[in-house]
């Protein structure tokens, strides 16, 4: 052991731009790895990262048992599937849970609870993700190139509020109950959204560029659900038609969304066009709104 300055100097020398985690081997056993978190990696050497705990089924193991770890002292994590098991990362749950900084890039599909309770930083998934991605998210950005499973940005059972900040972009489609009990923040879905999207929403915004599933906004108090392309399955009878008009705030939002992700199918017509406005759910507060783009 040397002095603190020497340790710091050694750490700087050992620091890498990214920490790479490559899944060692294929398996059908689920992995729980909430230790894959930039907040935990930033202050640790390669050996210390490899020693972080994880669960392989019900057995406690280390990250080093499951992944080849390369890199240290970085809050930028890159994850790769095992060479013999494409899609293996789909079994790895809780990646980036509670993260507040840094960046995680997942090359492949990610497992359940991806970015749950995250407060900052960014997660990028070059694949799809499973249930509960971004659950209780409070900040940061979560980008998914593929599809997302049910309960995206939702609240765990028994919890009052779901997502309360940050932004979730999903290029593909999402399962049922996206944004359930959402309190704040924004979810953008490039494809279709399943049933009960925005159910029991308290506030926040949910943009759907594909088809908005049936019973959207069930029980919502406030908040905005937008069917940007004008495609929505039957709304609940507890939503009432209000008007068809241009919505100024959509101009601000859609312009910013396009700057975030220029691959979103946003046209000038979406920005300047009119939207049908439905308000509800009148079984609760009734101050929520569903906006459905009105064809020209």
């Amino acid at each position: 052991m040397g002095c603190i300055a020497c340790i710091a100097a050694m750490r700087d020398e050992a620091a890498s731009d990214v920490v790479t985690l490559r899944l060692r081997a294929g398996s059908s056993i689920p992995v729980e790895a909430d230790t894959i978190c930039p907040d935990l990696f930033i202050g640790r050497s390669e050996a210390e990262i490899a020693a972080l705990p994880a669960f392989y089924g019900r057995r406690q193991v280390t990250l080093g048992d499951l992944f080849e770890v390369d890199g240290a002292y970085s809050d930028h994590i890159v994850m790769w599937d095992a060479t013999d098991d494409p899609g293996g990362l789909r079994r790895v749950k809780r990646i980036g849970q509670r993260m507040s900084r840094g960046r995680i890039v997942v090359h492949g599909d990610a497992g359940m609870h991806l970015g749950a309770e995250m407060r900052g930083g960014e997660i990028v998934v070059h694949g799809s993700t499973s249930t509960w991605a971004g659950a209780h998210m409070a900040g940061g950005i979560l980008r998914v190139d593929g599809n997302a499973g049910p309960m995206l940005g939702a609240a765990y059972p028994g919890e009052i509020r779901g997502m309360r900040g940050g932004v979730i972009f999903v290029r593909g489609s999402v399962g049922p109950r996206a944004g359930e009990r959402m309190r704040r923040g924004m979810i953008v879905v490039g494809g279709d959204a399943g049933e009960f999207s925005g159910a029991r929403m308290i506030a926040g915004s949910l943009f759907v560029f594909g088809t908005l599933g049936a019973r959207a906004g069930a029980g919502m108090k406030r908040g905005t659900i937008v069917a940007v392309n004008g495609r929505a399955e039957a709304l609940l009878p507890t939503f009432r038609y209000a008007c068809t008009s241009q919505v100024t705030f959509m101009r601000v939002y859609l312009r910013r969304l396009w700057e975030h992700d220029c691959q979103l199918p946003i046209t000038d017509a979406h920005v300047s066009g009119a939207y049908h406005r439905y308000t509800g759910d009148i079984t609760t507060l009734g101050k929520g709104e569903i906006l459905i783009y009105a064809e020209h």
């Binding site: 924004m186 506030a203 919505v247 100024t248 705030f249 601000v252 939002y253 910013r256």
Partner: peptide, 24 residues
């Protein structure tokens, strides 16, 4: 009481319902 708050990237906007539509 019918005003709507929207928060985007740290900025809060108010959508105030008016006879014409909304004032942002």
């Amino acid at each position: 009481g019918f005003q709507i708050s929207k928060k985007l990237e740290g900025k809060r906007y108010w959508r105030i319902p008016v006879m014409e539509g909304e004032f942002l």
